[in-house]
């Protein structure tokens, strides 16, 4: 077992982990941060995306020991200080960018990383960026719409009648 210490959503945490403990396992099992999900075992679905030192990574494809000393951000730390949804989260609700919710944490974390680097992405850029996030429910249409809206760009309203 190795002792790891990292900052997760602004709080310092530590724990003893085995060499093969994945970051996602540490988050879910040791820290009880179950918002980060595991949807595959080939690093493709993106349900486990978190930020490590500000960069989006797949927490199922990184060992907890590798996050020693790192700043980790998860879905649980994304809401505004008063508990209200942040801009991206709110856009996902407003534009119906989620259904079953399982891929959603990874989608939100990927969207946040995208908008940090590219505050006004084109639709093609959004779609390309989501290559590593699989959603089976929404057909992505409303996810793309939500991310574009969160970036302050105009998008068609939902269910325009």
């Amino acid at each position: 077992m190795t002792k790891v210490t990292m900052t997760v959503n602004g709080k310092s945490v530590s724990g003893d982990v085995a060499g093969n403990t994945l970051l996602v396992e540490f988050l879910r099992s040791d820290l009880h941060l179950t918002g980060t999900h595991v949807g595959c075992d080939t690093s493709q679905c993106g349900a486990c995306v978190v930020h490590v030192n500000g960069a989006a990574v797949k927490s199922c494809t990184m060992f907890a020991a590798e996050a020693e000393g790192a700043e980790v951000a998860t879905i649980e730390g994304q809401a505004n200080a008063d508990g209200s949804l942040n801009t991206i989260q709110q856009a996902f609700q407003d534009y119906h960018g989620l259904q079953c919710g399982f891929c959603t944490p990874g989608m939100v974390m990927s969207a946040a990383a995208l908008l940090k680097d590219n505050p006004k992405p084109s639709e093609q850029e959004v779609r390309a960026y989501l290559q590593g996030n699989i959603c089976r429910c929404t057909g992505y249409h409303n996810i793309v719409r939500a991310i574009m809206a969160a970036s302050g760009q105009e998008v068609p309203a939902v269910a325009a009648e």
Partner: peptide, 14 residues
Amino acid sequence: DVRFLTGAGNYTDD
């Protein structure tokens, strides 16, 4: 959506 967007969903593996 609020619980799913904040990581507060309660799925079976949770």
